[in-house]
Design a protein around this nucleic acid. Structure first.
Length: 279
DNA sequence: CTGAGCTCCTGGGAGC
DNA sequence: TGCTCCCAGGAGCTCA
């Protein structure tokens, strides 16, 4: 479910409740997620929340005694509610605050991650974060940076390369299709043949696509919602994702879908021509 | 080193 | 109506 915009929307949604408050306790109802939730969580009491940040699709809540590292997986979301509201199915973890609010982590498919990193350990050196690539919304993510990163994955289809977190973080299956459509680049184009001028086109499109989606509250397909339970509206801005057989908004040709790396990929054959191999 | 494929899990929808 | 099969927005891991 969540790609970078959905995680950012979630982060913004929980931040006002968390900042300047204390986590009274963390209640774990079902520990078996992607990784077993550490029993240490149950022993934590009255932690002061210092900051909230995001790295790729990971959310980091830093407190005075350590950090919580979270990932929403494919179906996870965080919901802020009052402490007396009833638990829902798949509410696996509750972060109980000292301000009458509670943040609930709900994850139907249990691919989410909930890790405790004690104070003294560098969160960013955690094995989940250490190899992550460029943060797309920062100034370091430039056309040259993208070009160089793609050169390390010569044969990989560019669509798969965009989804590789060691290159750039936060772009999942939906936005990868959308970004390539906006850039008129065929998703099967080998990453190594992407030119610097194509990177000059792609980088601003990546930033703009993600930012626009954040402004629209993310993309809701099936069950994504922000921390307030509201749906995201970026789905109305989608051009090709999930629209096979429908008309391309630019040329009217039918949108096609193919499977790349096991994932459905949507594109317009006419607008996104595959380049002829050099030689 | 790279890429392909498998894996964790539940639920919704299609097809019979 | 009910069963089975397939698919889904992630990403780490293993193996060739």
């Amino acid at each position: 479910m969540p790609e970078l915009p959905e995680v950012e929307v979630t982060l913004r949604g929980i931040s006002s409740s968390l900042i300047n408050s204390k986590i009274r306790e963390v209640r774990v109802h079902y520990p078996k997620l992607r990784e077993n939730i550490s029993p240490e969580f149950q022993t934590l009491r009255n932690m002061k929340v210092l900051s909230l940040s995001r790295r790729g699709k990971y959310i980091i809540i830093r407190t005075d005694v350590g950090s919580i590292l979270m990932h929403l997986g494919m179906s996870g979301h965080l919901l802020v509610c009052s402490q007396d509201s009833p638990l829902k199915k798949h509410d696996h973890v509750e972060i109980i605050l000292d301000n009458d609010k509670v943040i609930r982590f709900n994850d139907q498919r249990r691919f989410g991650l909930f890790l405790w990193i004690p104070e003294g350990q560098d969160v960013y050196k955690n094995r989940y974060l250490i190899n992550l690539g460029y943060e797309p919304l920062t100034d370091e993510f430039t056309p040259a940076a993208l070009f160089n990163a793609l050169q390390r994955h010569l044969k990989k289809p560019v669509k798969q390369a965009l989804m590789t977190n060691e290159i750039v973080v936060g772009i999942g299956n939906i936005y990868a299709s959308e970004i390539l459509f906006s850039c008129r680049i065929h998703p099967l184009t080998p990453a190594g043949t992407i030119t610097i001028s194509e990177c000059e086109k792609m980088v601003p499109v990546i930033k703009e696509t993600l930012l626009t989606s954040i402004e629209n509250g993310g993309t809701t397909i099936r069950d994504f919602s922000g921390a307030d339970g509201k749906m995201g509206y970026f789905v109305q801005n989608l051009n090709v994702y999930g629209k096979s057989g429908e008309k391309c908004p630019v040329c009217g040709h039918a949108i096609e879908s193919i499977v790349i790396g096991g994932r459905n990929t949507y594109f317009c054959q006419k607008c996104q021509k595959l380049k002829k191999p050099v030689n």
